[in-house]
Every structure is written in structure tokens, then in C-alpha cells.
Amino acid sequence: MTAGEPAALRVEDLGVRYGALVALEGVSWEVRSGEILGIIGPNGAGKSSCYDAATNMVRRSGRVWLAGRDVTAVPPHGLAPLGLRRAFQQNAFFADLTVLENMTAVLALDRGTGLAASLLAPWREAARRRAIEAEAAAILERFGIPRAMHRRRPPNLPYGTQRMLSIALAWGTGAKVLMLDEPAAGLGGEDMVRLRDLLAALKASGAALVVIEHHMDLIMAIADRIVVLDQGRMLAAGTPREVQADPRVLEAYLGRAA
């Protein structure tokens, strides 16, 4: 990110209420291109509410900017075409389609042509379909899913590969900002290493990543900065080293005083 360039994603004074329950209040942060921002906190701290608020999936107060553009009023489905994409905590794919068909469907949606083009120029549509399938295969390989698995259906994949598929589908044709909700959930060993390497590669490509995570070893290793939430409010923010040394974090998140 060059000097003077706006943050890839900036949120200011986000608030979420469910009746009398305050789930989020006064939360502000930003993430830049080529940076990983971690969001951590105890269960019930407001992490998922923060994601939902940033992507306009709940009624909330506050404002949101994407690359300097005010997108506060943009509905959730309008954010993806602008480059803000999100992978949910649970794996998300079409179980009855093959892995390649899943990826092809996402790319076709991103780049879709109308029905008229399919009817009036079927040869052109067939060539376009082949090109999209080739692109889909390349993206899947980039996300660690080998071609030998492309004709399988997602439920038949190892869990770690299902997780990579969900992230690849969220990424689609590319994201300026990718928000991940506990991507390491259920992973361990080699799968955790693959995830770490993937996040580092996406960061190196210039994407901005916002990662909710409970695996402290992972988030402390990959994040450039971390925001700590507690009871819906910002408790601390800074580099991993600064956050680890903050006595408020040690007390509220780790359950002990410094």
C-alpha cells in the first residue's frame, strides 16, 4: 500500500444490537492491501457480529469504506462485485456438483453472460465454458486442490480439502478483501500448514485479509496486526507482540492477569 492510498477496508464505530442485547459497540479498524488483520476474543466477544456488521448482514450502526468508497448502504450481495468477499465458519459448497463444477459455477456467476448469448452464439458459449473450466482448475490448484480431486464431489474430500474449497469459492475471480471466519476450525498437522501457506500467498498477492481465529499459534504467526474484542467492545489493538504483552488481553482473553 502506497502512502496516501486508502485502506482496503475500513470500519468506523460499528454497533449491533439484538433488542436490549448489545452485541457490538464502537468498534473501528482497518486493513490494508497486502496485510492480514486478525480478530480474536473469547467466545461471545462479538467477533462474528463484527463480520456481519462489516458486510451489512445485520442491522447495524457505523460506517464502512472499501478502498476509500463509502459502502455503508451497499447490500451484502452488492459487496462481492466490489471486491469484498467472505468465507463462513461452516464449509459452503454445492454437495451434488463436482469440485470443478462448483468452482466453474462461481466463475460463471462472476463473469456470466445472458441467456441470449447462449442461444444466439452457442459455439462462442462453448468456448467460453472451456476457458472458465480451465481457469477454475487453475484456481483450485492454487488453493491446494489437485486435479485428481476435481471430479469428486465435495463431501467425498478430506475435511482439510473441503476447507480449502470453501475458501477458493469465496475467493472466486479474486478479492480485494477476503474475510475468513475461523478458517482453521477442525484443522491440524499438514492441513494447518497448508492453510498458513495459503494465507501468506494471498497476502503476498496484494489481497487484504481479515481473519477471525481461535488458534492463537496461527494468528500470532500470520497477522500483521490484531484486534481483540471482549463483550462487544475493542479491548486492545496492535501487533501480535503488543497484544500478547497487553495485561488486559492476558486477563480477559487468556483468563489470567499479567
Rank of each mutant, 00 (worst) to 15 (best):
S205H: 08
V193R: 14
P240V: 07
V227Y: 04
V210L: 15
S205N: 07
I167E: 08
R32W: 09
Y253N: 07
W29K: 00
A8T: 05
G172E: 06
W29N: 00
A95V: 11
R142E: 15
A80P: 07
V64F: 01
R10M: 06
E133Q: 14
F94S: 11
R59L: 09
V99M: 08
R196Y: 05
V71S: 03
G188Y: 08
G38E: 08
I139Y: 12
L109A: 15
Q162Y: 05
N91F: 03
L66T: 11
R111G: 10
R153F: 08
I226W: 00
H215K: 14
A121G: 02
H215E: 15
L79D: 03
R63N: 06
R248Q: 13
R233K: 14
G38I: 13
R124D: 04
Y18F: 15
M1R: 13
V193L: 13
V193G: 04
A204C: 01
Y253P: 07
A175Y: 03
E133H: 08
A138Q: 09
A131I: 09
G62L: 04
V193M: 10
M192F: 07
E101S: 00
A126N: 03
L21V: 15
D191M: 12
M149A: 13
L21T: 15
I219F: 06
G112K: 11
R129S: 11
E251Q: 14
M103S: 06
K203C: 11
G38M: 10
Q231A: 14
L79Q: 05
A221I: 02
R124Q: 15
P81W: 03
G255E: 10
G189L: 11
G174L: 05
L195R: 03
V58G: 01
A184E: 01
R60F: 09
G232P: 07
I36E: 00
A67G: 12
R248T: 06
A200M: 13
G188M: 09
P155Y: 03
G186A: 11
V16H: 00
L107N: 00
G26M: 05
V193F: 09
A200S: 13
D217V: 06
